[in-house]
């Protein structure tokens, strides 16, 4: 994105509540920058549920492997992963939990995923309207199952949200998106999608190769998790990683062939 040199513009266009002369909100665009530097997150909508996966960049060798989960639960039936500033994401998740609780305390039913996302969208948008606050530095992929089946959405720093069959955000989003487009969505099963998700995260990591990462996958489906958002079982994760490794080997060798 081309940003005008600061000296060229009056300082105040940098304020969150004020448009630039050409109609942009720079704070939101800077927040998007923060997202674009974060580890890749993806979400896949399947016929029987949702799969979420993140590339968790490991900043220190002292961190305990397999702990410090990045994917979070908003309600039993709703999971979320995000790229960008982790504390901002945590705050957004807390807000989501409050919204889910308040809906449930009134209507005695789990919140519908579209209703949750609508409330979160309003909340995020509010942080683009006042110069005393800054927008959220995250794009959050929210997936869940309710009475109307699986839903997958992504909320961006501007507060806008769209529904997706496959969503990707973060540093490797371009690679991830082109991989997602190759899949037959949303006709995959969650079991198949877990493997594809692993493959996509590994492929997306190519753009971030100098850093170590851990793969984290969660899912929601009817058969295995009974509509709950849970981490995938240990064995399935292992299986998925093996699949991802095998696939990338294959591609490397086919690349070599093409070079010949």
């Amino acid at each position: 994105m081309m940003l005008p040199p600061l000296s060229f513009l009056p300082i105040f266009i940098d304020f969150n509540c004020i448009f630039s002369p050409d109609g942009r909100n720079f704070q939101v665009e800077y927040a998007t920058k923060a997202v674009e530097n974060g580890g890749t997150s993806i979400g896949i909508k399947c016929k029987d549920g949702i799969v979420l996966a993140v590339e968790k960049v490991v900043n220190s060798k002292l961190l305990v492997p397999g702990k410090n989960k990045k994917i979070q639960t908003i309600d039993r039936h709703v999971g979320v992963c995000y790229s960008g500033l982790i504390p901002d994401g945590r705050h957004l998740v807390n807000r989501g939990r409050d919204e889910a609780q308040s809906y449930k305390s009134l209507y005695k039913e789990p919140i519908l995923v579209p209703s949750l996302i609508d409330r979160l969208g309003i909340y995020v948008q509010n942080y683009t309207c006042y110069n005393s606050v800054r927008p959220f530095g995250v794009s959050a992929i929210v997936g869940g199952i309710d009475d109307n089946g699986p839903h997958l959405y992504m909320i961006e720093p501007s507060g806008v949200y769209w529904g997706y069959n496959g969503a990707a955000t973060g540093k490797g989003r371009q690679a991830a998106k082109s991989e997602l487009e190759k899949l037959d969505l949303p006709n995959l099963t969650t079991r198949e999608a877990v493997k594809e998700a692993a493959k996509i995260i590994y492929a997306a990591h190519e753009s971030n190769k100098d850093k170590d990462f851990e793969l984290e996958i969660s899912w929601i489906n009817y058969e295995d998790t009974k509509g709950r958002h849970e981490s995938i079982p240990e064995e399935l994760l292992k299986e998925a990683i093996e699949y991802a490794a095998a696939q990338s080997d294959e591609e490397e060798s086919s690349d070599e062939e093409m070079e010949e």
Partner: peptide, 24 residues
Amino acid sequence: YHLQMYTAQNGKPTTKIAASLFQE
């Protein structure tokens, strides 16, 4: 009133939701 609100925000309410409101 609550059901009108619900309809505007979330769509058609079920009988269970109406009953839950009475209950609360």
